[in-house]
Amino acid sequence: MASPPRDNETLGAGVIVMPIVGVALVLAVAATAAVVVPQFQSMFAGFGADLPGSTRLLLATYRGWVLGVVPVAVVWLCVPGRRSRAVAALLAGAAIAAALMLFVIWACYSPIIGLAALAG
């Protein structure tokens, strides 16, 4: 009868999958921004008003967000221990993706909310 797998044996796939998921999260947000932000940009052009700084920053930087995978890779390379490294890379990717997504939402909708406040 085969013995149950030890932690070291079951860890193999997770060590590879977790950093890949972290990178995939960042790439998914960057790809989503590449599709969504230009649509908002064309809408903002019709406003005829000055955009908030956050929106201008978004419009200037969203194409480079794919570089968010660099901190995930740095975390993966610098954290000691295979399991700790994998978890840290996953968490770094999730944190970067969440921060970028929140920034997209805030920067895209703040001009609309500001315009509504002027109209109301």
Rank of each mutant, 00 (worst) to 15 (best):
G48E: 02
L77V: 07
Y109E: 13
A45Y: 04
Q39S: 05
A60Q: 12
P38V: 12
M18G: 00
C78F: 05
Y109F: 15
V17I: 15
G120T: 13
G64F: 11
G14K: 08
L91W: 03
V35Y: 07
L100C: 07
W65Y: 03
A31H: 11
R63H: 13
A86P: 00
G22A: 01
M18H: 04
A98T: 15
V69Q: 03
A88Y: 02
W106L: 12
A88P: 06
A31L: 14
G64A: 10
A30C: 11
R82F: 01
G114T: 08
L58C: 04
G64Y: 13
A116P: 03
V79Q: 01
A92N: 06
A89Y: 04
G46H: 06
W76D: 07
A97R: 10
R56P: 00
P80W: 01
L77Y: 07
P111C: 09
P71L: 10
A94T: 06
V66F: 12
A119T: 12
F40D: 09
G68R: 07
V87H: 02
A89P: 04
A2C: 01
W65D: 07
G46V: 02
G12T: 02
I20Y: 13
A24L: 14
P80M: 07
A60F: 00
Q39R: 14
A49W: 08
S42F: 05
L11Q: 14
W76P: 00
V36Q: 14
V21E: 02
R6T: 12
V37Y: 04
G114M: 08
V75Y: 00
A31M: 15
V35C: 06
L100H: 05
N8C: 12
V70G: 00
P71F: 06
V75K: 07
A86D: 03
W76S: 05
V17A: 15
L118E: 15
L91H: 03
V37P: 03
G81F: 11
C78V: 07
V87P: 01
A34H: 10
